[in-house]
Write a protein that binds this DNA or RNA. Structure first.
Length: 218
DNA sequence: GAACACCGCTATTTACATCA
DNA sequence: ATGATGTAAATAGCGGTGTT
């Protein structure tokens, strides 16, 4: 087995997993038992009917011209009907069987190439997704930190308000925001018109204060 | 439905070319 | 010169399909 084919083992699994509908004919479905192929015996030669080395050598390696014409035909149509096979064979001075074998091998090479292309495409997409995941995770961390800060702010404000109201019961009519720093946690979620108050919008035109929001959503 | 031929596919072998 | 390695051609075995 070549190194290229070894490299394809994982890609195949990956692609099959991601596109089961596309590659069902390529790889066995999950749960499907792939029969172990019976191992082929080596033909050590010397049998009756075996060709001489010279005859075998003569058959080897098609000429560039033959390959060019075969490639041209393959480019037009990957499948080979018997009529076209016979015509090509006579044009090229080859056995129809050789033409069929050439197309068979060419299809296998083409398929391998396609799989490699598909694999590198999926790999690129996967890398992008991983980067995006990292970005979102750090965003989550950042937001959690912001939330923690907001909690502290709310806690501080609550304590100060409690202190003020217990010290001067006459001022129970409302908060005196002059003494309080603007609540930073509203940030980009701040509601127009409520910039100076610790309120959150919870939809349907309802607004609640920070502690209630915390109780609801934390 | 069994037997057969034909075809395509995958895995493997074989022969050759190239390179260190 | 030679062994390792890659590649193309060829083969084996299997399954699917159409025909008789």
């Amino acid at each position: 087995m070549t190194t290229q084919m070894k490299e394809l083992e994982d890609p195949m699994a990956l692609i099959t997993q991601m596109y089961p509908c596309i590659y069902t004919q390529v790889a066995p479905q999950q749960g499907e038992i792939s029969k172990p192929r019976r191992r082929r015996k080596k033909n050590k030669g010397g049998e009756s009917g075996a060709e001489t080395a010279a005859e075998t050598a003569k058959k080897r390696k098609l000429s560039q011209e033959q390959v060019d014409l075969l490639e041209l035909n393959f480019g037009n149509e990957h499948k080979l009907e018997s009529e076209r096979k016979d015509r090509l064979a006579s044009e090229l001075g080859l056995d129809p069987r050789q033409v069929a074998v050439w197309f068979q091998n060419r299809r296998a090479r083409w398929k391998n190439k396609k799989l490699e292309e598909e694999y590198s495409k999926l790999k690129t997409i996967h890398e992008g997704v991983v980067v995006e995941k990292c970005r979102l995770e750090s965003e989550v961390l950042k937001l959690k930190n912001q939330l923690r800060e907001a909690e502290k702010e709310i806690q501080g404000l609550t304590e100060r308000v409690d202190g003020v109201s217990s010290n001067s019961p006459s001022s129970s009519s409302g908060l005196s925001m002059e003494a309080v720093d603007p609540p930073p946690f509203l940030g980009e979620f701040g509601v127009q018109g409520f910039e100076d108050q610790d309120v959150f919008y919870i939809g349907q035109n309802s607004y609640i204060n920070g502690m209630e929001w915390m109780n609801l959503y934390m």
